[in-house]
Structures are given as structure tokens and as C-alpha cells.
Write a protein that binds this DNA or RNA. Structure first.
Lengths: 246, 246
DNA sequence: CGGTTTGGTTGACCGGGATCAAGCGGGGGG
DNA sequence: CCCCCCGCTTGATCCCGGTCAACCAAACCG
């Protein structure tokens, strides 16, 4: 039972059972006992500096990543060079699922602030899944939720007007931050206006103008990247307003 | 080893190993031997008449479905009643993956022509996956590809102009039909202009006008739902044209 | 077989958001 | 500490695609 202190330390450090994100991350909903089984799911951790990429579109796929802390954007680059932001990811969220289908990543994941991820070799995820039903179930749920999330964005882009999209974006951000114990009403945007615009299918000028308009309407307060939500109900009303009758 | 003739017949009829879609569907890439293992994956088949729905958003989730023949659309309805088409599905494609994450379907699947699906109880999919690595691998790939597909649509909606989107849509349809042994250049649209428009984030009038313009430009021939592609290269050029300099 | 309904086409006009342009301010690097 | 550059804001103008409307064709049904 005795083992070198250093090895113990390392295992502790990368063990899901010791992680304060276990309520949000892959092992969500597992009992303490079950969690022990996952303690060798993570092979190692990796720090990514702001502006650096965890992986690029086209690179071979080998592992999934769980955000430990920090903030990421995922981008897709089309044949003719246009770049589209396809998502933003924060602590506890899973990255890299796009790579499973074709053994290569299709999108690029870039840190928007200094971040750290848990590296989970995909072969290990599949092995453990086969032998451990709760992990299998949960992994399938995570994959499915990513599909549902993407379909939500499709609805956003396909059938909502610019102001509705931005309101929905702010409400979503606020909810995800709340789930992580941050303030629901006051936060710092990690991304630029351009990145928000790309994600929401509009130009950065439109994002900026809408922020200003929301401020005039006393829905939010904005100073550069600092946002304070004053009237979350109002934002929800904006995002739900089917274009009113003339 | 002997069993009633009827049971044998039934098993044959629903057996993946006997299905001519095995190259496209869930068992894709499995060897003949391996395929035998899947022969009890499908519990039954279900016919869906044109206009009827396989399942509705909000319904409890219990099974995945593989399209045997026919054509489906998936739609999402937002709180305020707006409907967004999130995808079109044809033979060999998998339906219902949105339901895994929350034990309820989030979207509604409606047949656009008389169709038939193979019903695969999800518990069975997970059981077989745990004991049969090739199925597990392939199932994960299918889930991942759905994510990648959705991200492609996000790029479409977020950063392409109407004519580029419609061109991309036609090219995509043509490719999928080709993979199924149909003509790449001549086909019948199963969906209305309104449904195409919803999927592509534009109004039906715009779809109609663009079809007419493509016809003027000798890229396609349209008569109602009948489409003939005259210049697939031209369509690809349209969809890739980053807005040209003035 | 005629009437009705549903889906498609086309025209005229309008407006939301893109584009072009100018100025500003704050944070990071020398 | 100061400067410079990047990101943000705001204004003026334009145009793509939405809206409203009229008409047509095919499918459907009694």
C-alpha cells in the first residue's frame, strides 16, 4: 500500500475524486465510490496561455479535454478562409468531441485567458466506458448535450434578430457563470466584440451598438469588457419577442 | 437450433447483416462476422406516413432510429412558437441523438414522405456498446459527426450570404444522394421552400428567387420540386466566393 | 370534373444590419 | 512612464434580404 510520496501527490492532483469541478464535469452525478474508478481517466494536465491553441483544425485527434480553469473559444475555418466562432467553453466543459468522428479535429480551440485542461486520452475514455456503465451513460449524455447546444445556436442564427441573439447570449453566459459560483449579474467578457459577432452571426459594430442600446434601455451596464446585468427579465423578454405586429 | 419459421423470417427482416444500408448506417465498416453481433440491435421497424411525426420535442426518449427509407426533417420550436428546421435526414442516417442528454427529445422528427425506420432501444445500444468495441467506436463516431455537421450549419448560418447557403445546400444534398446510389444531378426536393428557408435562415421568397437566379445563370434547372444540377462546379464556386472586392 | 387549398413565383418597397470611416481610450510593452 | 496599437464606439450611407401583395400551378377532394 505504501508508494512514493511524489506519486501519491501526482495522483491526488489529477484525480477527479479530488476535483472541485466534479459536479460540472465528466464525472457529474457519480457517487464518491464510483468516482474512484475515474481517477486514472486523466493522464495529465496541460496549461494553455492566453492566445495559444490547445489544438488546431486538421490535427490528429487523440484525447478529450476538460477545462479546469480558464476560457476557450472554438473556431472553424472555411475553405475560403472565413473564420466562424462555434462556441465558448468554461470550467468543467468538455473540448475535442468534434475529433472523434474523423480522427482529426475539425475546429481549433484557443484560450482566451490563461487556462488549464485535464487531458483524457480517448482510448482510455472508451476503455473505461466499456467497463463502467455510469461513465458510459454520462459520456453519451455529454455528447448529446453538445448536439442539443449546437441546435440551439442554429435556432439562434436561423430565426432570431440581432438584438434577440445578443440578449440570449448574455442570458446564457450569466446562467453558466452562476452554475460555477460566479456572480450572475457582473462579469468580465473574455472575448472581443468581433468574436461575439462571429459567434452570433453579426458584425462587431452591431454588437457594440446593441450593447449601447441595451445600456440606454437600462438592461445592462457596459464598460469595455466589463458587463453588469441590471434587468435579466428584460433581457429574457428581448430574446423571446417574436417580432411584434406592426 | 431449430426455431419457428416466422421468427427466423422476422429476424432476417430486421437483421443489420441483411440490410442493404449497412455501408451507410450504424454498422458501417463492420465485417460480416461482426455484423452478426448486431442482429438484435434493432427491436422492430416502424413506418411513418408523410406528414406524421416519429417523435415530438418534449416526449420521453427511449430509442434511436435509423432511417431505412424515406425522408425526415427535424424541427425545434422556441418558447415563443417560432419553428426552426435543424436538419434533413435520409436513408442510413440516425435520428434521436438529441434525446440522450436529457431523457427527452428536444426536437420533433417529421416524415416528409412515407418512410420506415429501424427502432433501436437505447438501453440495447449501450449494452451492446459495452460488450462490443467496434459498435462502441462507431456509435461515438456517429455522435461526433452529428456535432461536426451542426457546426457546419453554424458556419453556414453565421458567415455566408443567402446565395452561398443555398448553393452549399444543393451541393450537400447532391453528395448525400450520390452516396446512396441516386443521381447526383437530378432529384426531387422532399421539402417545401419554406422548410429550406427555415433551415438556411432565409424566407421562402428568397429561396424561390435564388432558385430562379441559379436557373438564369445556368447552374440548375428547377420546376417546382424537381431540380437538375447543370453545373456543380459553378455551385461550388458560388458557395466559396468570399464576398468579392468591389 | 370543378372548386378549393396549398405551395411557388414574381414584383414593389422597406428596413435592419453591413460597410465605410473617423475618433477614442486603455492596457501592454519598450 | 509614456506611447502606440488594438479594440471599442459612434456616425453616415448602402444594399441584401425581409415584407407585403398579387397571381399562378398543381395537387387534392368531394
Amino acid at each position: 500500500m505504501t508508494e512514493p510520496a511524489l506519486a501519491t501527490l501526482t495522483r491526488l492532483r489529477t484525480a477527479c475524486s479530488q476535483c472541485n469541478l466534479r459536479e460540472l464535469c465528466l464525472p457529474m452525478g457519480l457517487s464518491a465510490d464510483e468516482l474512484q474508478t475515474l481517477d486514472n481517466l486523466v493522464s495529465t494536465r496541460r496549461k494553455v496561455r492566453r492566445g495559444d491553441s490547445l489544438f488546431y483544425g486538421g490535427e490528429p485527434f487523440s484525447a478529450l479535454y476538460a477545462v479546469r480553469y480558464g476560457f476557450f473559444k472554438s473556431t472553424l475555418t472555411s475553405g475560403d478562409g472565413r473564420e466562424q466562432v462555434t462556441g465558448f467553453y468554461m470550467a468543467g466543459e468538455l473540448l475535442g468531441m468534434d475529433g472523434i468522428g474523423g480522427d482529426r479535429h475539425t475546429c481549433t480551440l484557443t484560450a482566451l485567458e490563461d487556462s488549464e485542461v485535464c487531458v483524457m486520452p480517448f482510448a482510455r475514455v472508451e476503455d473505461l466506458s466499456r467497463n463502467f456503465e455510469p461513465l458510459q451513460r454520462h459520456f453519451h449524455r455529454v455528447l448529446s448535450r453538445e448536439i442539443v447546444r449546437d441546435q440551439g445556436v442554429m435556432m439562434l442564427l436561423g430565426s432570431m434578430r440581432a438584438e434577440e441573439r445578443l440578449a440570449a447570449f448574455l442570458v446564457n453566459l450569466s446562467q453558466r457563470l452562476t452554475a460555477r459560483g460566479f456572480s450572475a449579474s457582473e462579469f468580465v467578457l473574455r472575448m472581443t466584440r468581433d468574436e461575439i459577432g462571429s459567434y452570433l452571426g453579426m458584425k462587431l459594430e452591431t454588437v457594440s451598438r446593441l450593447f449601447s442600446r441595451f445600456q440606454e434601455d437600462a438592461l445592462i451596464e457596459v464598460h469595455q469588457k466589463h458587463v453588469r446585468i441590471l434587468d435579466i427579465g428584460g433581457l429574457k423578454r428581448v430574446m423571446a419577442q417574436a417580432q411584434s405586429a406592426p
